[in-house]
Amino acid sequence: MKNFKFLLIGIFFGIVLTKSEVISWFRIYEMFKFQSFHMYGIIGSAVILGIPLMYLFNKQKIKTNQGVAVKIELREKGLSKNLLGGIIFGLGWALGGACPGPMFALIGKGIIPIVVVLFGAVLGAFAYHGIKHKLPH
């Protein structure tokens, strides 16, 4: 099964998110209160190591397992969409204390109310695509 490796990568990622308490509502709250370095350290160290990694991928010094250059789909430009979308996301991230990855990890942890949050997130993604032609991008 060619997708099995992605399941394994997901399991690894889920363990990391859970063990580092990124899935805890409290870790998100204290981040926005600037009362702990934990989340800043995680995102910061991931990005600082990620920058040379992406440089090597972009320079084709590292290739995929198929031996071809990595095709990196860039995120779309647009000040309104990135800023407004980002702000809306941030409001929800702080309120629920979970971004999409941790929502799935919390399901694995057996937290029933997170199913309501995930359902809301699916509904939100649906609503966005339903009304996106009316929004600034």
Partner: peptide, 14 residues
């Protein structure tokens, strides 16, 4: 549900 909605809407918008 509101927290989830904001996360879903905002992440796809952004």
């Amino acid at each position: 549900i509101g927290a989830g909605f904001l996360v879903g809407f905002g992440s796809r918008y952004a």
